[in-house]
Structures are given as structure tokens and as C-alpha cells.
Design a protein around this nucleic acid. Structure first.
Length: 559
DNA sequence: GCCGTTTTCGGCCCGACTGTTTTCAGTCG
């Protein structure tokens, strides 16, 4: 099993134990193990071979032994024992924000509802309010939560769809006769939520009998992937095989390797784009539209005016990962990160960055071990002590804070402390259930503060779980423009906040964007892709993105 | 289940919000 699969398995164990009412600390131990695995750079198999599993944080005797079981056999005793104890639908119910394990268990036991759909029906039939501990108000709220959850999960978040597609692609690559495998469709276009996973498979076999064989092997391999159930149909020529699963729909397109690029183009879509008179030009890596040869980046192909922009030579020159000079919103062990300032700085150096801002949490966020004013000042001393050593290697460590925006728009730290810092990211973490006017005023007040540089995760959304708080985004953008403040694309996969549409609006208003990993570990410093695809879909160029600037330009902007 | 020890078991990030069971349990970040 891969790291990813084992981590998901430990999470599944935690979910089930939690619903069963197990000791919450035991439940947490499994979750911590999953987090540790997600943060690993190396394969668990390699670590196990070296006999180092027990050295991983949160890995005691039990977790290490279960990990070894998973590596050797694909399962372990506790998983076999509990995997069927709680229906998957009940686990799903518990995952709906605001429901939780206790409530899911109570509903399951009292009404025998074992799926989100059954629970929704029970709410509509007013059967929930009859249960002890529930009432009409709770029933109404529950229905609202289910509806919000369904809206958010109509499509699969990129966060989950991409690993799934990569896993499938890796399996397909192992098949003999398969020359090339690429992910196409919405994923290639950088979409944040995915209705269809499309994968193009290029094969070398040209005889139809052999091709049939290859398809058979593809089918066999595909069935093994991700625990999904596959149904695969296909015929030659054209070789479009549809593979259906619950969510999202999965297409595997098998093509002769000589027609690979053309197929990849067609399967990348969207249909509106590919049908607009473009033909694949196979002698040049690009597409020949009627007037002019131009390669149009997949992320731009959803723009309604992209062909006109291409014809007139006005396509934006999209940023790539190599353009990034540093990162501006990271956490350390001072608050809720897992790496020290030094470790984060070393990781930034390894990535070739010229600067790194340390922005731990402010005191209100007690659960994240937010920093009091005294601790901010102490951290500042530590940073200043580390600076010469890292400056000599070409890395500037910027001091900062991710300061909470309080209910009235004031900041969770004294001005004289903020004044001493290089950079301040202001974010909302608490009391986000306010109406649009209040939340907009609150955020705009914060943006007006002379100390604030960047508005962190501006809408507060969590992919697949929580809609952003109600916000007049136009007013926020206008305020950011007025005071010369940047908005963040938070690049952590669970946030991806702002979305591409909002970023496009911000760019049009001349507002600068910071693309930040919001890293809580060394590994998550590499989470740039999630924000990068939003930036590229929004057409951002180097000039639009603060952390694509060199240190001098950044410092000038910070003032 | 992990951890750090007073090496064998007690403590495990904590404060706010919500609905209702009206005094606290469940959930969230």
C-alpha cells in the first residue's frame, strides 16, 4: 500500500472508532498517525525497511505494527474487525459539518438511517424531531446542513480527485504496451472541483486483437484502483471507453500513440473550446486556429473570449512554479506547525527561495497555541538571531504574524508589536457566522489598518465542507485596491481560497495577489500547485503575484 | 493509542458557540 492509502485507512479507522464512542484520544492517535504519514517525504515501506517506523511522530508500538501489517498484507486486524461495523453512509453523515459522530450515531440507532439520503428523507418527514434530544429547530438546521453539504459535494474537490486520477494513471502506466498516460479534462484545466476524471492512454499495439488484449488489461488494472467499482466499455476505432463510478465519472480514453496529442487535446476540453474551429497541428506543439498558430494553456480554455485574445496576441503569460521567489504565510512549532523556524528556513533554501515569512497565529486562536505579544517578541529575537546565517546562503527570513480579525474588524495584537514585523497576514478564524454586511465591514476595517499587508484565505471556505462566509467580494476588492493591500490565494488543498473568478476580479481592479501555502510542515511548503492552478485559471502574470517578485521589489511594496 | 516519565499510568492544545435536554453535551476551529 502507498503512504496515501495507509493514511486514508488510519483516518477510516478513526472515523469508525469515533462513531463507536471510543476514547477520543485513541481516535486522535489514529488521526495524528494519518497526518504524520501525509507529511512524509519518504515511502513508509522504505522507512520500515530501515526499522525507523517508531521514530515517526505519533508512531508507537501499535501504530507501527499496524503500518507494517498494511505494508505486508494490505490490511490489519483492527481494520478487519471494524470495517463493517458502521455503514459507510453513517460515516458520511458524521462528516457533514455540524453533524458529527455523536449525532450521526444517535440518528442511526434511533431511526435506522444509514445514508445521507435516508437522513434527509427522515428530516423531511419530521421523524427526527421525535427523538429525545432533538427538536424541530434542530431538525430544520440538520436539513439545511445536509443541503449545504450536497451543494458542496455535487462535484468532487480537486483535492481528492487529483490523487485518485494520479493513482489510476500510475496503474495504467504499468501495463505492457502502454506508452504514455496523461490526465486530461477538468483536472488538466486546473478546475477546483471535478465532475469527470479523464485519462488518455497511448498504446503502441496496432493490431486489433492485441488491442483488445490491452484493453482487457486496462480493465483488469482499473478494477483494482481506489476501491471503486468499474464498468468499462469500449470499441475500436475511436477507443473511447467509459468507466463509471459513483463520484466522479471516470473516462479512460485509449488511443494509438501516434494520435496521442490530438486525443489529449480533445479530451482536455471543454467542448465549447475544442469545437470552435481549432485543429491539432501535429508538427508543432500547439493548436492552429483559423488565423494563427498559438498554444492556448489548458487553464485558459474555459475563458469565453480566449480565442479572441489568442488572435490578438493578448493571452496572458501565465506564471509557473519556477517563478516563485518565496513564500509569505507559514507556521512553525511556535504555534501549530510541526517544524521549527530553522527547519522551515532550511526547507525554503532547498526549494531555492530567496525569502520566507514566518507568520504564526495570534493569541485568540488558543487551540493553535497562538502567540501572546511576549511570545511574538521572543520569536522575533529568534528570527533575528537566525538571519545572518541564512542571509549568507541567500535566504531572507521575514518576521510576521497571521493575526486574527476580531468581530469588530480590529486585530488580535497590539499595534506596537505589529509595527516591528516585516509582514502581517490578517485572517478570520472565529465568529464567521455573521451576515454579509457585518462580515464585509469587519474585513474592510481590517484592510484599512496600516499594519495589514495581506488578507489571508479571504472567504473562509473549506472545499467540500464549508461555504465561505457571506461576503461582498466587490467591496473587499475595492477596499484592498484603495489601501494597496494584497489578497491571498491560500494554496492549502482544503482551502483553495480565493477562487479563480474572484482572483480575476481582483486582477482587473489592480489588486496584488499572494499565493501562500499556509504551510504547517516542511512538506506542505510544497503545496503550491493547488493555488497555482487557481492563479493560472485567473490569468495571473508575474507582475500580479507578490511572491513572484524579488526581495527588493517585495520590500518596496511592503513599505 | 501515544507519551513521558515520580518507568507504569495519568494526561492528552482549549475557548466559544449552539440548541435545548434550560445547564450541558456536541461541535468547531
Amino acid at each position: 500500500m502507498t503512504n496515501y492509502e495507509i493514511a486514508r485507512r488510519f483516518e477510516a479507522i478513526a472515523d469508525i472508532l469515533e462513531i463507536q464512542g471510543e476514547n477520543p484520544f485513541k481516535v486522535r492517535a489514529y488521526r495524528v498517525a494519518a497526518e504524520t504519514i501525509d507529511d512524509l517525504e519518504d515511502d513508509l515501506a522504505t522507512i520500515h525497511e530501515r526499522g525507523k517506523l517508531r521514530e515517526l511522530p505519533g508512531f508507537g508500538e501499535a501504530i507501527a505494527s499496524k503500518t507494517a501489517d498494511f505494508l505486508a498484507t494490505g490490511t490489519t486486524a483492527i481494520w478487519e474487525r471494524i470495517k463493517d461495523a458502521v455503514p459507510a453512509g453513517v460515516v458520511k453523515m458524521a462528516s457533514i459539518p455540524g453533524v458529527g459522530p455523536r449525532t450521526a450515531k444517535a440518528l442511526w440507532e434511533a431511526l435506522e438511517v444509514a445514508s445521507v439520503e435516508a437522513l434527509e428523507a427522515a428530516c423531511r418527514e419530521q421523524r427526527v424531531r421525535a427523538i429525545a434530544g432533538f427538536g424541530a429547530a434542530k431538525e430544520t438546521k440538520l436539513l439545511e446542513k445536509i443541503e449545504a453539504w450536497k451543494r458542496l459535494n455535487e462535484k468532487m474537490s480537486r483535492r481528492w480527485a487529483l490523487p485518485l486520477a494520479e493513482k489510476l494513471a500510475a496503474e495504467l502506466r504499468k501495463i505492457e504496451g502502454v506508452e504514455r498516460v496523461d490526465i486530461a479534462g477538468e483536472l488538466r484545466r486546473g478546475c477546483e472541483s471535478i465532475a469527470e476524471i479523464e485519462i488518455v492512454v497511448g498504446i503502441t499495439v496496432l493490431i486489433s486483437e492485441e488491442l483488445k488484449d490491452a484493453q482487457l488489461r486496462v480493465r483488469t488494472e482499473a478494477q483494482k484502483v481506489g476501491g471503486l467499482e468499474w464498468k468499462l466499455e469500449g470499441k475500436y476505432p475511436g477507443l473511447i471507453s467509459s468507466v463509471k463510478s459513483g463520484e466522479p465519472e471516470i473516462w479512460v480514453d485509449i488511443t494509438d500513440i501516434n494520435a496521442f496529442e490530438e486525443t489529449l487535446f480533445g479530451c482536455t476540453g471543454p467542448v465549447k473550446f475544442t469545437e470552435q474551429g481549432l485543429v491539432w497541428h501535429d508538427s508543432t506543439p500547439g493548436f492552429l486556429d483559423v488565423s494563427r498558430l498559438t498554444f492556448i494553456e489548458p487553464e485558459l480554455r474555459d475563458w469565453p473570449d480566449v480565442l479572441e485574445l489568442a488572435r490578438t496576441g493578448k493571452l496572458p503569460k501565465l506564471i509557473v512554479e519556477a517563478d516563485f521567489k518565496g513564500q509569505l504565510h507559514e507556521h512553525t512549532t511556535w504555534s501549530d506547525g510541526t517544524a521549527s523556524v530553522r527547519e522551515m528556513a532550511e526547507a525554503a533554501l532547498e526549494r531555492g527561495y530567496a525569502y520566507l515569512a514566518i507568520t504564526d497565529h495570534s493569541p485568540l486562536l488558543a487551540i493553535a497555541n497562538g502567540l501572546s505579544r511576549e511570545r511574538v517578541l521572543a520569536q522575533l529575537e529568534e528570527i533575528e538571531a537566525l538571519r545572518p546565517e541564512f542571509a549568507a546562503q541567500g535566504l531572507a527570513i521575514l518576521s510576521g504574524l497571521e493575526v486574527d480579525i476580531l468581530k469588530d474588524g480590529t486585530l488580535d495584537m497590539d499595534d506596537d508589536v505589529l509595527e516591528k514585523l516585516d509582514i502581517v497576514v490578517a485572517s478570520v478564524h472565529m465568529r464567521y457566522k455573521e451576515d454579509e454586511a457585518a462580515m464585509t465591514a469587519r474585513i474592510c476595517t481590517a484592510l484599512a489598518s496600516p499594519h495589514v499587508d495581506i488578507l489571508g484565505h479571504p472567504t473562509g471556505r473549506i472545499m467540500g465542507q464549508r461555504e465561505g462566509y457571506p461576503l461582498d467580494i466587490d467591496a473587499v476588492i475595492a477596499t484592498a485596491a484603495k489601501y494597496g493591500k494584497a489578497l491571498e490565494i491560500n494554496s492549502s488543498p482544503e482551502r483553495m481560497d480565493l477562487c479563480d473568478e474572484h482572483v480575476k476580479l481582483a486582477k482587473a481592479a489592480g489588486v496584488k495577489i499572494a499565493i501562500n501555502c499556509d504551510a504547517h510542515s516542511v512538506k506542505s511548503l510544497g503545496n503550491l500547485d493547488w493555488g497555482l492552478c487557481i492563479a493560472r485559471r485567473a490569468g495571473l502574470e508575474i507582475g500580479d503575484v507578490l511572491n513572484c517578485w524579488d526581495l527588493k521589489a517585495l520590500r518596496e511594496w511592503l513599505g
